[in-house]
Design a protein around this nucleic acid. Structure first.
Length: 652
DNA sequence: TGGTTATTCGCCCTCTGCTGGGGTCGA
DNA sequence: ATCGACCCCAGCAGAGGGCGAATAACCA
């Protein structure tokens, strides 16, 4: 059955009697035998509410300087049980409240979407028929625990003797008898205020959920939800451990039931004195067992032995499938799960993730919840685990612990160093080839960027700048536009002339029409092209114009054209023909040059620069005034310059 | 009571992916 | 000379794997 089909408890079958008990009422309730906060045989067994399937006792409980919580007010909830078969209520989508109890006391908490007037569902009682169970819905008053906070609430339960269902004996912790202690964790406690007034800062807050059967023959049970006031015990003077152990018994302990022992330093409780006594040792610094090699002290012989093994390298538990060996059998088992059996008992209820260790699942869950408990104190960054915060702190400290052994470059992360070494100093570095265009890219992440930029499908049509073609992929567009590169698509209808740009064709067409639209204002010379006019103006009307002078180094003779100089040198200095060629090579530059000949000086060199600028901006020059003799002559035409050559010259 | 087992925490690691600056190249 | 495209590279963070060690629980 799908989660959506889980029968949601409703008000119609749930009777909730909520009342604040007066002191006398409490006594009456006790007389009924239904409400006991601490059971006699077992006590203080904790269970963590856990969508996380984080079974087992919580080790990291906040340490409290007192022993026993004292309730300050109480609420009685009477709830009618709902008879359901286990098949009716599929557990999928529901969180489990799991913890140690022997009788079996699975408590399911609904997901957030299930929050309503009845925010939680408890499986409590087992019928004679194994498949028939009682489903009890409880509603926790909002002032005790707002529904929106319930999902993140962590519960600690102490069970009081009501027969309970056993869904999965392996999952069901040993609760024994007692009451249910529901603890609000740090994130919630601030928002749950006792009725008596605002909670004191830093005070731990607990809610007791106590479960008891109602009248015989009735399907009802009684739940009591209580606030706990820890202050009273905090104020008690310190006692000896033994006295404290005795003092840890419940304040309203039932007759004939064994007491429990609660640690006065932390929340640890145990019904066995031996266990309790052993636990106490962790709070004192008595370390009687010394390592003879390093003098380090340990509390137990086992710890000492394990430590000595780290000196000697003794690892008795060897893996049969590899060369690994471990100090303890547990480490070996875990290793085998990681490396050989791949058994992953801890499964995420929200995705397919499973892990070998519970702590890994817990960490994984944070990627679903977004919880970031580890806050950087220097910026707003918060991390999901301690290591990431530690790594992040390097961005503040500037620490770069990883150094390249070859070039001594330093890096903040080992992975960055590894990539650096592979790319800079490695041999046969694997490259990443783009499957679409065979581009070779060093890094996979960069290939991803390449794919995103060039090969991703664009919903918008990208038009070719030269033709009407449209594309949805940039790479295809670029490849297509390259086909236009040397294309002479502008063809003259009257001759074979063809060119790449329309402006060349326009200029060419004047050769057929005989038009010469560009006129020199000084000498009334006409030109077909604007650029020809520019050359004319420079040569004949610009007083600063210095013609190119090609000098023969052998005889000192000047030539105005390079070709004439070359012809001359073949006769004058055939041995240095190569030199002439070399001189020619230097003379050919993108920018028109004035070769230094007789009469050259630095002043004219500056003028050359101006002349070049004017040639770049012919419009400005054409508008300007110029004077001087005009030996009207279109030398550029004489030299056979094409439209394209001139335009190109102007472009440069 | 001591030894063993199970649980939990903490640390470090790798792999992965994103981001932005720098260098190169072609238009 | 300028600009845009693209690859290279380091920085940074997310996620998960693996293991050492401490401690609680269990058992003989």
């Amino acid at each position: 059955m799908a989660a959506a089909e889980v029968p949601v408890p409703s008000e119609s079958f749930t009777q909730i009697k909520e009342q604040k008990l007066k002191p006398g009422d409490q006594e009456k309730e006790k007389e009924k035998g239904g409400v006991q906060r601490m059971g006699a045989q077992e006590c203080a067994v904790e269970a963590e509410f856990c969508q996380l399937l984080d079974a087992g006792p919580q080790k990291n409980q906040p340490e409290l300087p007192l022993s026993v919580p004292v309730e300050s007010d109480r609420r009685i909830l009477t709830l009618q049980t709902l008879h359901l078969t286990s098949q009716d209520v599929h557990l999928q989508g529901l969180g489990w409240l799991s913890g140690p109890h022997s009788e079996g006391f699975p408590v399911m908490m609904p997901q957030a979407e299930s929050f309503g007037p009845l925010p939680s569902v408890l499986w409590l009682e087992q019928e004679p028929q194994p498949s028939l169970q009682h489903c009890v819905a409880i509603s926790i008053p909002e002032e005790l625990c707002p529904p929106e906070e319930l999902e993140r609430t962590q519960f600690h339960l102490v069970w009081e003797g009501v027969p309970v269902a056993e869904e999965d004996p392996e999952l069901m912790p040993d609760l024994g008898e007692g009451t249910a202690l529901m603890k609000l964790e740090d994130g919630e406690k601030d928002q749950v205020l006792p009725e008596g007034g605002p909670e004191k800062e830093g005070e731990e807050r607990y809610l007791f959920v106590e479960v008891a059967p109602a009248d015989e023959g009735n399907d009802e049970i009684v739940l009591t939800i209580s606030h706990l006031n820890l202050e009273e015990q905090q104020d008690q003077p310190n006692q000896t451990s033994a006295t404290k152990a005795a003092a840890t018994k419940p304040p309203r302990k039932a007759k004939g039931k064994p007491r429990t022992f609660q640690c006065d330093v932390c929340l640890f409780t145990s019904s066995k004195f031996s266990t309790f006594n052993r636990h106490k040792k962790i709070h004192n610094d008595e370390r009687a067992h010394l390592c003879h090699l390093c003098l380090k002290a340990f509390r137990t012989v086992t710890l000492l032995r394990n430590h000595v093994n780290t000196h000697t390298g003794t690892r008795p538990y060897k893996c049969g499938d590899c060369d690994m060996a471990f100090v303890t059998s547990g480490e070996l088992v875990r290793h085998r799960r990681y490396k050989h059996t791949y058994e992953k008992p801890f499964k995420c209820s929200l995705c397919k993730y499973a892990s070998v260790e519970a702590s890994k699942l817990k960490r994984h869950i944070r990627s679903h919840t977004g919880e970031r408990p580890f806050q950087c104190y220097q910026c707003t960054y918060a991390s999901k685990d301690t290591y990431k915060l530690k790594r992040h702190m390097r961005t503040h400290s500037g620490e770069k612990p990883y150094e390249c052994p070859t070039c001594h470059a330093r890096f903040t992360q080992s992975g960055t160093l590894k990539i650096h070494v592979a790319q800079k100093h490695g041999e046969n570095v694997p490259k990443h080839v783009c499957p679409h265009c065979a581009t070779v890219i060093a890094r996979k992440s960069d290939l991803r960027v390449h794919l995103r930029n060039l090969h991703s499908h664009s919903p918008m049509e990208i038009k070719c700048r030269y033709c009407p073609a449209v594309f949805h992929e940039r790479y295809a567009l670029i490849q297509h536009q390259r086909t236009h590169k040397n294309e002479k698509k502008f063809k003259c209808k009257q001759c074979d002339y063809a060119c790449k740009q329309e402006r060349y064709l326009t200029a060419h067409m004047f050769t057929h029409t005989g038009e010469k639209p560009f006129s020199c204002l000084d000498c009334n010379k006409h030109f077909r092209q604007k650029q020809q006019l520019m050359v004319h103006l420079r040569k004949y009307h610009d007083p600063s114009f210095i013609p190119n002078v090609h000098l023969c180094l052998k005889c000192g003779k000047h030539f105005s054209r390079r070709s004439n100089l070359q012809r001359h040198r073949k006769k004058c200095d055939p041995e240095h023909e190569e030199l002439a060629t070399s001189v020619k090579g230097r003379a050919v530059q993108k920018k028109p040059t004035v070769e230094k000949g007789p009469g050259w000086d630095n002043d004219t060199a500056g003028q050359e620069s101006n002349t070049w600028k004017e040639a770049q901006y012919p419009e400005e020059l054409a508008l300007g005034h110029h004077s001087g003799d005009c030996a009207a002559r279109s030398e550029s035409q004489d030299e056979g310059l094409t439209c394209e050559m001139i335009f190109n010259m102007m472009d440069k």
